[in-house]
Design a protein around this nucleic acid. Structure first.
Lengths: 226, 226
DNA sequence: GTGATACTTTGATTATGATCGAATGGTGAG
DNA sequence: CTCACCATTCGATCATAATCAAAGTATCAC
């Protein structure tokens, strides 16, 4: 026994309902204050503070003090990917959630995953990119082809600028609702950003749901049919 | 809050040290009896039994009664993938494991992941396959090209027979030590099986470590250099 | 049948940690 | 400087669940 890294240490951090809810909220990619997270977690401020200290100590979240606020955020996309993986299992072996509900179906169609697009729409985009050989994916790695570079330029995303950053340009992130990959990395983030700028979609306040406008929906369809 | 599936329910199952050790042991892919798992978990038989009941109830493991033995196994590769994802985070933000130790480096080189090859060797194989366009991977999905089919036939794996099974032929599984993908699915399992049959490697008793023989190491090198 | 083995259940104990009220430490506004 | 606000720390309470001993159930060997 005691092979490999200590699973239980990390898992038990996620294993508390209050902390799990906080982490879910942080999956939106936004940095939230302790009070906001207390609300999300359904606990009092002192309790939330103690939880956040543990998460921070455990390396799952980072904290940035800004004036009298302290902003908490996920420690990285790796943590986000892990949370998606757990969500996947929870959904498949899950408690057979009785009524999916409208919020749930909206989440399945399009949502934020850390900072990029997930759900049916995210997977559809990823599929299109790989099928048209605009993107070459192997496992969690992914790389743009020359054609892909042109495609994104045409769409309006400045790939060259993104490449200067330390963060990987393309990543494949496993989607919990569809169980297939969607585009992550700085390119994934920039793409979603651009869709917001084009007014194709907007975020629903206080949730991970991304709502497409009728126009946006049509344009998106056109984009991935072309 | 209460977006998506219930993370904490699953995570808390993995969050207990005894259960985490048991699950780690099951990552070897073998089905183990309750007494063996009690040993792995470092707890008494009654305790282990209670843990196993919870894991089974939670859908993480399956149980098969055979005579007076009850064999427990991971519920599926999805659960295995989740455990690898958690391992990845645990390793990266980890408790700065002081001494990696020989066992650890052996695990990094080659180990069993559920039923296929993981570690440096597993990733090297996967890289070779995708680079030579023998395998086309996109996210967690992967598909053999015609060339790839020939390559595996040449190696000695009967692909056609594997395709009849319900289980997917190819999958990409994220490796916790290397953080890149290795080959999973029935093809991944059959490949490792064949390597054992060729005497290229054997399993170390009571652990996930796969030890390559000198001959096996050389042959493997040749295989992925060709 | 009897005894032995493999496992689960029950019940009681104990330890861990989640929770909140009250007090404390910083930060910004006036 | 003082007040208001955000957040953490402390202290005490309380609930959950991990643990094992002992008893119970089931299967196999003979």
């Amino acid at each position: 026994m005691k092979d490999g890294p200590d699973l239980s240490r990390i898992a038990s951090l996620v294993g508390d309902p209050a902390r799990a809810n906080m982490l879910s909220a942080l999956m939106s990619g936004a940095a939230l204050t302790a009070s906001e997270l207390a609300l999300e977690g359904g606990v009092g401020l002192p309790t939330a503070s103690s939880h956040l200290a543990k998460l921070s100590e455990g390396g799952l979240v980072t904290v940035a003090s800004q004036g009298r606020h302290r902003y908490y955020a996920l420690a990285g996309s790796e943590v986000a990917a892990m949370l998606e993986a757990i969500s996947g299992v929870a959904a498949s072996v899950g408690p057979r959630r009785v009524r999916p509900g409208p919020r749930d179906s909206a989440m399945r169609e399009a949502r934020i995953c850390y900072d990029h697009l997930a759900g049916d729409k995210g997977v559809a985009l990823f599929d299109h990119l790989t099928q048209k050989r605009l993107l070459k994916a192997s496992g969690q790695e992914a790389a743009l082809t020359p054609n892909g570079r042109a495609w994104f330029a045409d769409f309006g995303v400045d790939v060259a600028q993104l490449e200067n950053k330390r963060r990987p340009l393309c990543r494949a992130c496993l989607d919990w609702s569809v169980r297939r990959s969607h585009l992550a990395g700085s390119l994934g983030a920039a793409t979603l950003e651009h869709m917001f700028a084009l007014n194709w979609a907007r975020r629903e306040a206080g949730s991970r749901v991304v709502r497409f406008t009728p126009k946006g929906r049509a344009e998106f369809e056109r984009l991935i049919r072309a």
